[in-house]
Write a protein that binds this DNA or RNA. Structure first.
Lengths: 110, 110
DNA sequence: CTGGATCCCATTTGATACTG
DNA sequence: CAGTATCAAATGGGATCCAG
């Protein structure tokens, strides 16, 4: 038990609160390839309800992970994009992807 | 949208289910330095209840992330240790630690 | 010391319908 | 299209007491 380890613990715990929320890792992963619209995220996060998606996006916006861009057109268009802070989460997502590939065979049917 | 990206999505989602559970990242981080006893983990995960700690450890054991070693002594001693699968989660934990250090100033008081 | 059993509450998430 | 409103359900997690 030392100060260095305690600081690590704190950093890990704080990061876990962000990335651990349901759907969050998936959303960041989807946004890693560029801006996405609400309906696009709704489709790629298959199973998420619009209520939950809206709430997650608001939380990520408040945490400075994503930016919301609203274009007052008709039909309305809103895009979500990773910030610099959000992009620095990508190494975590990538490590998760590698772990999943190695240890969690995907049984998804196409 | 392509098959490669869908496979990534699946891997990330499955890993998120493991690492996203509360306390899990912290537990794996604590166990990264070697085997730990129940009471040691209880102390380092400050605030966790024995009920929750026991539940998390059981889940991690079933997922093959940790191994439980029971020594029938008096007083009883039980140690938890990362498996190979558990150790392969460490790159994720390390990426989380780096993110936390860069973006999440720790206000913890000593 | 290492938990199991029980009770209970707060938060999160989902389903569905609806609106500007 | 991009959400909001409402209700219901699941889940997580703390407190407490108890046992091997």
């Amino acid at each position: 038990m030392n100060a260095v380890h305690e600081a690590s613990t704190c950093a890990v715990a704080a990061t876990a609160e962000i990335i651990g929320a349901k759907w969050t890792a998936l959303l960041v992963h989807d946004l890693s390839e560029g801006p996405r619209r609400f309906s696009e995220l709704e489709h790629s996060c298959s199973g998420i309800s619009p209520r939950t998606l809206a709430e997650r996006l608001r939380a990520l916006e408040q945490e400075g992970i994503v930016e919301r861009h609203s274009y007052p057109e008709s039909p309305p268009r809103v895009e979500y994009e990773l910030t610099g802070k959000g992009e620095s989460l990508l190494p975590i997502i990538d490590a998760m992807r590698l772990f999943g590939h190695s240890w969690l065979p995907c049984h998804h049917q196409h």
